[in-house]
Amino acid sequence: MSRRSASRAKDAPAIRLRSPAQIVAAIPYLVGFHPSESLVAVGLGSEAPRVCLTVRVDLPPADCSHPLAQLLATHLRHAEAGGVFLVIFTEETGEPPRPDLVTALEEATGEMGIEVRDALWVRSGRWRSYRCRAPQCCPPGGTPVDAGQVSELAAAAAFLGDVVHGSREDLERALEPVGPLARAALDQTFERVRRQFMSELPGRGRDVVGAESRALLMAAVQARAESAAELSAAEVARLALGLSDVLVRDSALTWAGTDLEHAAEAVWVELVRKATSPYDAPAATLLAVHAYLRGNGAYARIALDRALASDPAYSFALLLVEGLDRGVPPKALRAALTRNGRAA
């Protein structure tokens, strides 16, 4: 999700989701946009009823229901989910729609010991349960999706500067490069800063320049934590050049999951949109790591698509794509980054 401000995560209220109505209302906040023609699985941890993984996929053709169900169940198992809410968003006809997909998902998750807490569908702003037919709680006409069910979550999102986009396409557009006029000015500044950077590098040495890059990044993140002021063109160029050093980039990973997480994400988003290609790829990949560690695979993939569109050979982005494809859980990624000294 794009970030407008960067308040400290530790001050945000803890949010608990207890009912199907709350799960349905919370999904746009969990994936960053309002899904359509989608399947969303909200996995809950086996040891504590917290959201451990949120997966959104386009609704598959009928003949792909079983392969998708197996893949999704595998991802949930890798995330050590003990339970899952399944929610289908569709305007397709049928009462209920896509029962084949729900049955395949129930069978696949059941084989792996994952309990389906409920299976729901949302159509025209109203939700219904595949399982419950009691009119007092699940009326035949459905129940309106009520954002008030998650007013605390909405308040927390506003507190942290999170934006819920209208669609996946809107979320993708939030990471699109700036327009051509701004692009030309940024590229001109970048070339000037790059020439100066490269001319100074041999004399000063990589260690000194790297330390300066880390200090500049820290200053930018701390400034964003206090203010939504944007970076100057020269700052965009210098920070992007700094992140081209793998050691500097890896040091920036330590902000994921900390008080400065949202401030760092705001800086990454700005660099993704403004840095000259392919120097925007490291920032896009850092953004993907933040989303991945939160269990938001949808946003992680969008950020990785953006990174690889800029630099198709960017190895860290390719590694993260492989991890997502294999269903590597967020905590396993965090452990791997920690072992390699890349994250706290």
Score class of each variant (00 low, 15 high):
residue 189 T to L: 01
residue 65 S to E: 08
residue 234 A to K: 12
residue 196 Q to R: 14
residue 265 E to A: 01
residue 78 H to I: 03
residue 43 G to L: 06
residue 197 F to W: 15
residue 154 A to Q: 12
residue 122 V to I: 11
residue 34 H to T: 05
residue 110 G to F: 09
residue 173 R to F: 10
residue 250 D to G: 00
residue 135 P to D: 14
residue 45 G to C: 02
residue 117 R to E: 11
residue 55 V to N: 12
residue 215 A to Y: 04
residue 168 R to Q: 15
residue 235 E to P: 08
residue 10 K to V: 04
residue 73 A to L: 03
residue 129 S to F: 10
residue 79 A to I: 01
residue 326 R to V: 04
residue 141 G to Y: 02
residue 6 A to H: 06
residue 138 C to R: 14
residue 138 C to E: 15
residue 221 V to S: 11
residue 22 Q to I: 07
residue 104 A to C: 06
residue 159 F to M: 13
residue 139 P to Y: 10
residue 242 G to R: 07
residue 296 N to H: 14
residue 261 E to Y: 00
residue 76 L to E: 02
residue 206 R to P: 09
residue 44 L to V: 07
residue 298 A to E: 07
residue 17 L to I: 15
residue 11 D to N: 09
residue 200 E to M: 07
residue 86 L to T: 09
residue 227 S to V: 04
residue 78 H to V: 03
residue 69 A to G: 08
residue 297 G to M: 13
residue 216 L to E: 08
residue 307 A to L: 09
residue 146 D to C: 06
residue 101 L to N: 09
residue 194 R to P: 00
residue 123 R to Q: 05
residue 233 A to G: 00
residue 339 R to K: 08
residue 309 A to G: 09
residue 10 K to H: 07
residue 143 T to Q: 14
residue 235 E to M: 11
residue 203 G to P: 07
residue 192 R to Y: 00
residue 114 I to H: 01
residue 29 Y to E: 14
residue 20 P to C: 11
residue 295 G to M: 06
residue 71 L to F: 00
residue 99 P to K: 03
residue 47 E to F: 03
residue 48 A to N: 12
residue 143 T to D: 13
residue 201 L to E: 13
residue 136 Q to G: 10
residue 61 P to D: 05
residue 227 S to T: 09
residue 337 L to S: 00
residue 237 A to M: 10
residue 261 E to K: 00
residue 121 W to F: 13
residue 193 V to T: 03
residue 258 T to Q: 06
residue 127 W to P: 00
residue 136 Q to N: 12
residue 206 R to S: 13
residue 119 A to W: 05
residue 180 P to T: 14
